[in-house]
Nucleic acid binder design. Structure first.
Lengths: 194, 194, 194, 194
DNA sequence: GATGAATGAGTTTTCATTCAT
DNA sequence: AATGAATGAAAACTCATTCAT
């Protein structure tokens, strides 16, 4: 939605990488500007504050989540396959940009400021809502077991996904996330299918 | 193991609460000493550095995890009940001290320093190992389904637990974690039982 | 004397208003350029530095003071009426452009730089000299009391004028300066007439 | 009222002198700490912000004004002598601490921040009120002329005092303020006496 | 004439830590 | 044990100015 300039994209990217590699405490304007290759003041020509940079990272992710969700709704796949698609897509995105995974699942990072933590809560709620709705369709169509609430099923799906990503991050992105994710999905599918 | 003085316990407690309520970025010696009720310098009589305080928090949690695990091993319960016990116990601990939950599952907090992140990795590995072993016993005894690897089953268990705790934290600890946890456990049990 | 371009006049005007409304500390090239409606760099097409802008404001006021004074000298009015004219004229100018009043009587603003404070001293000396000379004429013509030195009489005249303007500024220009000034003049006239 | 520590007094004093000598724009924490002889951070152990320092300077002056006024009321002098006393006292104070004069009459300095400008307005109103009340007593007792309002008389008194102090400041404190002030008082007395 | 990007020096403030008392 | 004062480094951000386009 927001059309970023190249410089802004560079800054956002550098910020994500800095956080992923060294934690938010290392996301300082000094480190960031060094990574971008400009002086500290120059950053402020592109974002009005450090919080603003973080806000844009989250906003980008939120918009991406929304567009993924509407893309799926259009495709008219059976619910299980919709879940599979979302699962795969997310793991693919994270594998392509590991830093993003590290940032997006570390809510603590954004606890700092209300504007940030609000967006985090929104993203989390939105994501779970998307999964829940698909699961409920699946339950209605008898594709997905209905002896367990959609709330719990979505929690199990998202929870295990997050856990895998967190471990992957802590391991220094040392294995192939997409493969492991695919294998995890197979297990989950077995558990939730009717 | 480490015999803490009362002052040390007070400091550790205050630190955990500060982090839980406002994020690590608010864990400063100034804020901490104000919460404890002493001057800044006084903190250094009890811990040799800020990292040292965080290290002790993690160490405490790690020891607690270890003692929980050995307690279970002595009790000779059937595997499913062992899992139930661990699940319940953890949720109870977190409900009793919400701040701890907020801190312990937020690995990002400790990414700052290698000594810290090493302990985080150890704790995560240890926890998953405990769950995996019990699950494997359960599979051997035909109590737990064996068409899904113990690796994945433990991921699903731990992942959904972490997810629930994370949501609870983000919601401002606004609901009864123990009850929700109990209900989640029932769902998980249904899914993993043979 | 100095023939300003339209852009230069706009910049000077905006600068005066910025200072009057928010203080010199808010007179930054960024704020100024925003008010003028151009980018920061553009300002430097019209003035070679920020000090240069301030210098021109003072120079304008000084020239205005000089022309007022020579206008009066030509008109050959009785001294008391000359004073009245100056008094009225100044209050009229300030009422018409409140911002100018706020700036011109706030010597502190220009203490920053020697080139500026020198002009301030010149303006102050010039103004007092103009008043003193008229008063001395009045004393020679027995129109104005001569039991008090022209130095003191001019101080009282200028001092009370400045005080009224300062209060008006601090009150947010909340009352009619011209009327209040007229009334003050009546009082002063009573006090200085022979 | 507020019992300042020695360090705080030193800081306040240094701040006043810095402003008087070079203007507020030179009152930076860096310059201030250098003058005090400590590092920049050290200032913050004694005042919580730069504004706080300025606020305390004004508050000190305000309290001083109040105590002067109540001292006078107790002494039961004839109104003209009360005015004389206040006049003398103020000029004495300024002569003793020139920097204070430079700061206190330069309202612009404090336009920066609402908390500051509010106190400035209060001080100005308080001072004029004190003078006005004495003048009104004098008018009631037929000591002071009543063909001119107490409002205008106080404006003339305070205005000429401020003007003299401003000139003295701009001249680099180059003459004896107390003597000049005494002489000005004599002129003013002549003008306001009945 | 004007823009957009940048710089280098500066701003206020906070931080973890030390140390004499 | 604890305080109060201090330090040196670093934080986020702002400023006047320059310059290629």
């Amino acid at each position: 939605m927001t059309p970023f300039t190249n410089r802004q994209l560079k800054i956002i990217d550098s910020a994500i990488e800095l956080i992923a590699r060294e934690g938010i405490q290392k996301l300082t304007i000094k480190n960031l500007s060094a990574k971008v290759g400009v002086t500290e003041g120059a950053i402020y020509r592109h974002f009005k504050s450090k919080i603003d940079i973080l806000l844009n990272i989250l906003e980008m992710f939120k918009e991406n989540t929304e567009s993924l969700s509407s893309k799926i709704r259009q495709e008219e796949l059976p619910p299980i396959q919709q879940l599979h698609f979302l699962f795969k897509e997310r793991f693919q995105q994270f594998a392509a940009k590991p830093a993003l995974a590290a940032v997006i699942f570390a809510e603590e990072i954004f606890q700092n400021d209300n504007r940030l933590s609000d967006v985090i809560v929104e993203i989390m709620a939105l994501t779970q809502k998307i999964f829940k709705e698909i699961i409920e369709q699946g339950q209605a169509k008898k594709e997905i077991r209905d002896d367990i609430s959609s709330e719990h099923l979505s929690m199990i799906l998202l929870g295990s996904m997050r856990f895998m990503v967190a471990k992957w991050h802590l391991s220094g992105f040392s294995y192939n996330l997409e493969e492991e994710g695919k294998s995890l999905w197979e297990s989950i599918k077995k558990m939730i299918k009717k």
